[in-house]
Nucleic acid binder design. Structure first.
Lengths: 384, 384
DNA sequence: TTGAAAGCGTTACCAG
DNA sequence: CTGGTAACGCTTTCAA
């Protein structure tokens, strides 16, 4: 039955970055075929004018009712509401937005479509916040060149923007601020005057992690950090966690052992090996990286080092991902969904005119899972 | 400095479903404060009329140029383009959409905001497809009641919809079809006449997995499936993988061992234990579930059964998630990002009038990772 | 090749 | 309390 309709056989499509697929395309001679009638694409959108006519009132009155304005006779309201329900009216989004001058939409600028199991939660959180407030939610994944950002603002597609992957000095931030276009950040700049944000407190998070490890008896604790160019660019999380680490080590009289790596499994594995070559007496690793930290597990396994008996590991990561690790990965918890939600909520509050600027910096939560333990006293150079 | 600006101290907010946070809110007296000038919210949107005036042509001409219509003198086009560049014009999205009658936007209806590490990839894929075609991308996470779906269609917010989590008989599908509103599916119904979809071939996927395990020597292979109510509702993936499994077992003369469980760690763990209680001679488990399959790992670990030496495990899962498992989880690969991308691409093609209906059912790919191996011949009741 | 003008479906102001 | 009517910024005939 289905086979009979095969029009042209087997085509080849280079799939994105994964395997190649066999694609069967079933052609349908337009309008012919079994099944449902050609279907007159339900063409006439029921408009406010239709309602007005049917209810024998003016369009202004209908509009007032739709917008819950006070000055309408209760009796009229009833009658019109009935008609609306009967005819099944929904305002035309674009007409409404054009006339009203507001979109009732927010957008999340998602830097790149690179998968991470982590930042995806930002999306769902922000989308939920939008839907809770009856706002539409745009996800924008194209690279935001200066020109495109300008176009986005001018297009009036959205009333406000959520920015993420913030750098200490971020051109997008300066630009939007100068323009007076509403936005909030997931992350923060060096100077956040007048801008709402929610951010992970990387300094304190790292400090807490290191302090906890020290309490367990560790003295040689390394940070899997970022390459120099990331610091030079002033990427907030990188700079702040490095600073927090260096400072905590200084305070506690520990050596600061930094290993640079980009957020890929290959680089993390290499960095881990280098770390262990240079510091065979290492007993703990703190990772700035999220689910990529699996590469650390693999590297340790390759060297026959056990987690946590030989080396403890802790990272910034979401709950969902941390629990897939074996042993489960201890974490400075990254509640990304909540971050997204709060960002959305703040932005909408701002759009609705609550003049308050919010700076949300939740205190980091350590989640102790089985990847950390006291160091083995029996190891060479182990802690006292 | 920052401390000096603290207005009201420490507030309490019940965060979504995670811990409670300390939220510091810095109030700002509106308009005062250091930093940037009050900023005259760049109020006047540069319109097509402005361009027309500046270039001494009519708005129609400008419009034609913007839409790349052929009938414009090259000299005029140049001049107007220059003015556009100088004045920094971007069309007002809503005005354009209202007048043109098309949104150049697609929407993904994402059933619920429940996290899964898996279906998130659909989002990014679809968003990428949209952005590649210069379409805007809406993510809609609110539950789509019949009423809301109708409203969405009527609102003209979007030109088309991507549906997911499809049931064999799906009211949303019938509704949209009847309405003639453009849509595509990630998943498929029992009858897909005239509707484009991309779907995982669950039957074949399961068949391949079982066949492979049999080739390795397994004879007792269980399927971690879904509870009865899921089948009763006709949830496609559940029904199809069960059918594929039962049929393959029948063909190969194997016993069909089904264990029902919803997609939660608790239920999967329980199901696994029950399975092993009843079938101590089990040597392999196929899981319909994605990253939740970690619960199977934990249950096996709790019983001191090793993967893959004692029990092999394979599941439908994305690459990214599978590799976080230890040992890495063998999979019927679920290229969710690609699915999302293809769905977006198909929908846009459909909107742009390529009359073709596409049915994409990629042949499933087995990815052999370390969670499967031949059964131990030494186990009691092991295969011959 | 160009311009004038009529919508697109709302909102919002201003009279009555 | 209600009804005209002018925007909102763009597209699209229809004439010139």
């Amino acid at each position: 039955m289905r086979a009979a309709r095969l029009k042209y056989g087997v085509a080849f499509t280079p799939s994105l970055d994964i395997a190649c697929w066999i694609i069967k395309i079933f052609g349908i001679v337009a309008g012919s075929d079994t099944g449902h009638k050609p279907m007159a694409t339900s063409t006439h959108h029921v408009t406010i004018a239709d309602i007005a006519r049917a209810a024998s009132v003016s369009v202004s009155t209908v509009s007032r009712i739709l917008n819950n304005k006070p000055d309408v006779a209760e009796e009229t309201r009833q009658r019109v509401q009935t008609v609306i329900a009967e005819l099944g009216f929904t305002p035309h989004a674009h007409a409404q937005r054009l006339a009203a001058g507001r979109s009732r939409a927010i957008a999340l600028l998602f830097p790149d479509a690179q998968l991470s199991l982590m930042r995806e939660e930002f999306i769902l959180g922000a989308a939920k916040a939008a839907s809770d407030a009856s706002y539409a939610f745009y996800l924008i994944t194209s690279a935001p060149s200066r020109h495109q950002l300008a176009a986005l603002c001018r297009s009036a597609l959205t009333d406000g923007i959520i920015l993420m992957e913030i750098h200490l000095r971020d051109w997008r931030v300066s630009y939007l601020k100068r323009l007076g276009f509403p936005f909030v950040m997931i992350g923060r700049c060096a100077n956040n005057n007048g801008i709402s944000f929610i951010d992970m407190d990387f300094e304190r998070g790292i400090a807490q992690a290191v302090e906890h490890l020290v309490k367990l008896g560790h003295r040689k604790i390394a940070l899997l950090a970022s390459p120099d160019d990331v610091y030079e660019r002033g990427y907030g999380p990188a700079v702040r966690s490095r600073d927090g680490y260096v400072q905590t080590c200084a305070q506690l009289g520990l050596p600061a052992i930094l290993a640079p790596a980009n957020d890929t499994q290959a680089e993390l594995a290499e960095a881990t090996h280098m770390l262990l070559d240079r510091h065979p007496d290492l007993t703990a690793i703190v990772s700035m990286h999220g689910d990529t930290t699996i590469a650390v597990y693999r590297a340790l396994e390759a060297r026959n080092l056990r987690i946590p008996e030989d080396v403890s590991v802790i990272a910034f990561i979401t709950r969902r991902a941390a629990e897939l690790f074996t042993p489960p990965l201890a974490a400075i918890d990254f509640p990304a969904y909540d971050f997204g939600y709060q960002a959305g909520r703040m932005l909408i509050a701002q759009l609705q005119g609550s003049g308050n600027v919010e700076h949300i910096l939740p205190s980091p939560q350590l989640i102790l899972r089985r990847s950390i333990a006291p160091p083995r006293t029996s190891r060479p150079n182990g802690s006292a």
